[in-house]
Design a protein around this nucleic acid. Structure first.
Lengths: 231, 231
DNA sequence: ATTTGACCAAAATCGTATAATTGGTCAAAA
DNA sequence: TTTTGACCAATTATACGATTTTGGTCAAAT
């Protein structure tokens, strides 16, 4: 406790382990990645992992949360950095790209069995069906704020957002990337479609960015609280 | 040859076999369905099947063509019957519903391994990636005719059409149907989105229907020619 | 001239004994 | 006190022979 380096080392260790697990899992899948390999990759012993989590299952849980948080943080900076275009389209575009940029979350979303393995599926199927896209509630809130059209129910809009993302993320396995147009133009077209088809004209651009960031900060806060808790 | 019933019986038999194969394959998948079972279900002997096709592989090929043709015919009647709404939105809506209505084609589109089995994947992967949705060429033609927006390339629009359909068809495996909004409202929202996001305002409604039917008739003709050929 | 179904070789499946791997533990080292 | 890694039980992979299933054939029946 005297040496702050030791303390820092200790609090950063779970993170290092998760990063190792992330690297290996994206490459070989959850099932094919062993606890031993993760330990080796993280430069710690196997026992050290069991000092943090009671079992591999809980490690995977933590890994998924970790990756989801990374995506949310990535999305946050994408939105903040983009100062030229505070539109609903831009918001959705950044969301798609942020998810696509993260292989594990992408696999989780598309239910890619190769990466997820049987591991994740064995449990109750609902467990990993966490919402990354806007929730029904957020959509409803945005409708009230005059940002999204109100002639579709929040359920339907949320559903369309999801299916659009799913299609975007899975299409590469049907149409090989070499036959596909550049991602940028695709995302651009999707975003434009969402903009003209689902948003309310004349909504405050400032409000869009604000409420999006508010939503994300809430999610980040939730991740942080959960991470602090026992597990 | 004297009795016309015999002749009719003969020409209809391949169809009966395909229908039997269709029934069994949608239920058990290609792999789990045996040639013998198909013969039993169709009320013919196994040899009779080999009188029509040289092997199971060719039977599956024929089955897929058969189902695709069914979808195209279904789509055709949907479009013709819908006299109230000759919009691009309606066209796309009918397409989605027609595909979704056919389990085999739906499985082919979403690459559902349970139904397709290893059988279809063993071959060159391109083989069964036939376009059902509008081709690049059709899209380009519709752009020239002022029906689709020209600020996206034909490739991008085709790609977005595909990914949207893929998302629509696969979402049920991620979000269970009980948690989903009614299909009608979903399709409605998607169609509205396509309409406002990808179509050119002021395009002739008559032209939309006309060119759609023209395209479908061309496809049907192609199926018919192929069916007449040797195999 | 057609159609059938018993028949066959090849492939898939099953049963199982053996070997290798892996999640998890804990006495010992640091 | 904290961390490690040899160790173990249990699960999973492998090998392989026996058994069943299945795609495909063809002499016989219709």
């Amino acid at each position: 406790m005297k040496n702050p380096n030791v303390n820092k080392q200790r609090v950063e260790r779970p993170k290092r382990i998760l990063e190792a697990a992330s690297r290996l899992s994206t490459h070989y899948g959850f099932d094919k990645t062993t606890v031993d390999e993760i330990a080796k990759e993280a430069g710690v012993s196997k026992g050290a992992i069991y000092l943090v989590w009671p079992g591999k299952e809980e490690l995977i849980d933590a890994l998924i949360e970790f990756e989801m948080k990374k995506v949310v943080l990535d999305l946050r900076t994408r939105i903040i950095d983009d100062q030229t275009n505070d539109s609903m389209a831009a918001l959705y575009r950044h969301t798609l790209l942020a998810i696509q940029h993260n292989p594990l979350v992408s696999a989780l979303y598309t239910r890619n069995g190769k990466v997820l393995g049987d591991f994740v599926h064995r449990q109750d199927p609902e467990r990993y069906t966490k919402r990354l896209l806007m929730s029904k509630e957020s959509v409803a809130a945005m409708q009230s704020a005059g940002l999204l059209r109100e002639d579709h129910s929040p359920e339907v809009i949320t559903y369309v957002f999801s299916l659009l993302a799913l299609g975007f993320l899975s299409i590469s396995s049907v149409i090989p990337e070499q036959n596909a147009p550049p991602i940028e133009s695709t995302v651009e077209a999707i975003a434009a479609m969402v903009e003209s088809g689902l948003t309310q004209k004349g909504g405050s651009r400032k409000l869009i960015k604000e409420s999006a960031l508010q939503m994300l900060d809430l999610m980040i806060e939730q991740y942080e609280n959960r991470g602090t808790n026992d597990n």
